[in-house]
Design a protein around this nucleic acid. Structure first.
Lengths: 230, 230
DNA sequence: CATTTAAGTGCGGTATTTTGCAATAATTGT
DNA sequence: ACAATTATTGCAAAATACCGCACTTAAATG
């Protein structure tokens, strides 16, 4: 049983069953469990699966809702958020869209400084309901259920009369050459409009986000006044 | 039964049922209840659910308005909601505003019938994000933090093009003579507009609500086609 | 052809993780 | 307040993973 063939079989099985256990594979492929573990490690490095205790699972199983990202790198996100919150000043008008890092920012907003916040993120809005000094405006539209943000043309109308001081933009990836990118096309128009209606944009990016490029481009990194990296 | 597999199943079940109990899971997955508890703890740390005494609930249920009285009359509301849900038919366009009884209705909406729902209630929208067959539109505006609904003139614009089949109206009180009443003036305009843009209104009232009259009047009881009393 | 080099594999010993059990604490309902 | 259910904690046993090493194989090299 050659290595290449094992790889092929493992990946095929993973497609069907979505999850595999080490011992089962070692019997099925008639090699030691150590070999299987080494195979899985190698396949994980290639990004073809995710190792777990006891075996491996399909990568497609990982991006559950969006919330997987909440846990991953959470500590780093809090650190980024702490730095970004310093930009807030009394009386400002703020736009914030979705994303787990923005959630951390919202959590860290001091309860005693008055702000006016516009957002299209349902969980973020719910969170800000606890802030007595925040005047909250929700930007309505079609709800993208996977990330619980509203999108669509009605948002553009609602943004029209706004000139915000800061825009906390959630992005999926940043790249020196390709700029800030996101996985859904609908988001792009919204984010561009939000950007256009703000004096300064804030982007926070964990290390993770520096190693990927998503399908749709929002803007250049030079369009972002405050870029916080890990 | 691998840990990773349990995680997958638990999260899948949670999507469907929105709440799970420890003992049931331990039997279903054939592991001890201790293991289930540890699983739930871990999943909670990842932000994928919220542990409660006896089991776990979906995270989307969390941003409930604090003000909603803690399950007083809850059972009665569920009963009313059960009756009202029968009005729903495939393909309908629905308007729902805030209120705890409407939350129960949303919870009881079958996951397999396609609907188009317009709402201005943040927790209700969050709840409906789990319904794959519901197309969800959020009506944006100024957020009234105590009840987590959005209000204001922008909603009126967004309602303009809509002609809904049903409007589930949340009210604070009903009275034979004074009709349906609410405690905030801003709500009145919105509710009237929603009423005007719907073919039929649905109101559910627990006994409690029949013995009060609030400051602002929305409409007569004769304007409500479906009035469910306890 | 002999030797080197490198990759792949299995084995033993040692960590780490997971799990069920038992004792104790906390919570809920009456 | 009390009884019953549910949670938490510490602990030991089992399962699983990791590391270093030796051995094989095979290609490459002189």
């Amino acid at each position: 049983m050659q290595k290449a063939e094992r790889f092929r079989i493992i990946l095929e099985l993973l497609k069907e069953k979505q999850q595999l256990n080490t011992l089962g594979l070692s019997i099925r492929l008639d090699v030691s469990d150590d070999t299987i573990r080494r195979d899985l490690t190698e396949l994980e490095e290639k990004g073809l699966l995710v190792k777990v205790h006891g075996g491996a699972i399909s990568r497609s199983l990982i991006p559950l809702p969006i919330q997987e990202r909440i846990s991953i790198e959470q500590a780093a996100k809090v650190e980024l958020a702490k730095r970004a919150v310093c930009l807030l000043e009394s009386g400002q008008v703020i736009i914030m869209d979705g994303g787990s890092t923005n959630m951390e920012v919202a959590r860290l907003i001091p309860h005693d400084i008055p702000l006016q916040v516009f957002t299209n993120s349902l969980p973020l809005a719910a969170l800000l309901c606890d802030h007595a000094e925040v005047e909250l405006q929700f930007l309505g539209g079609t709800v993208l259920k996977s990330s619980q943000v509203s999108l669509g043309p009605t948002i553009l109308d609602q943004l029209a009369p706004i000139r915000a001081d800061l825009y906390f933009m959630g992005v999926a990836a940043i790249h020196q050459q390709f700029g800030a990118t996101v996985p859904h096309y609908e988001e792009v128009l919204i984010k561009r409009k939000m950007l256009a209606h703000s004096q300064a944009a804030v982007v926070m990016a964990t290390k993770q986000k520096e190693q990927v490029v998503e399908k749709f481009r929002v803007c250049d990194l030079s369009d972002v006044k405050y870029l916080y990296k890990e």
